[in-house]
Amino acid sequence: MTGAPRSIVVVDDDEDVRRLLVLSLSRVGGYDVRPVDSGQACLAELRRDRPDAVVLDVMMPVMDGPATLEEIRIDPDILDVPVVFLTAGIVDSDVERLRTLPVSGVLHKPFDPMRLPAQLAQLLGW
């Protein structure tokens, strides 16, 4: 990695999980992490400043992960931003459905904050 660290937008409605994601990805992974708390905020953040990747929670009120992804994929300015889902779901059919969407991968909660950055980098091919 040269120059400025890669930037990642993390989206999760749970404040604690968000904080943990920031700690893990910035402290362990060394990324520039920008947390937001909803799908709408994510879209605004992406349009404001295009990041290198998005870590997107699936189950969120108002606008869930797949809905947010859909909005990202139809906006010409940000449609090619890599997205990784972060899900607490366990029902296989749900997870399978997530994998069929245009994302780089699916990560599961609970995650190990010490290993998360490496797992993310592997999914994104960094």
Binding site: S24, A88, P110
Partner: peptide, 28 residues
């Protein structure tokens, strides 16, 4: 029900376990 319970149990577990793991790692 399983789907919701799974989500509701795992979200706090994520924070608890993650925080403890970070503490344990000595990183903070």
């Amino acid at each position: 029900f399983v789907s919701v319970v799974s989500h509701e149990l795992r979200t706090p577990l994520t924070s608890i376990k993650g925080s403890l793991q970070m503490l344990d790692s000595g990183l903070v």
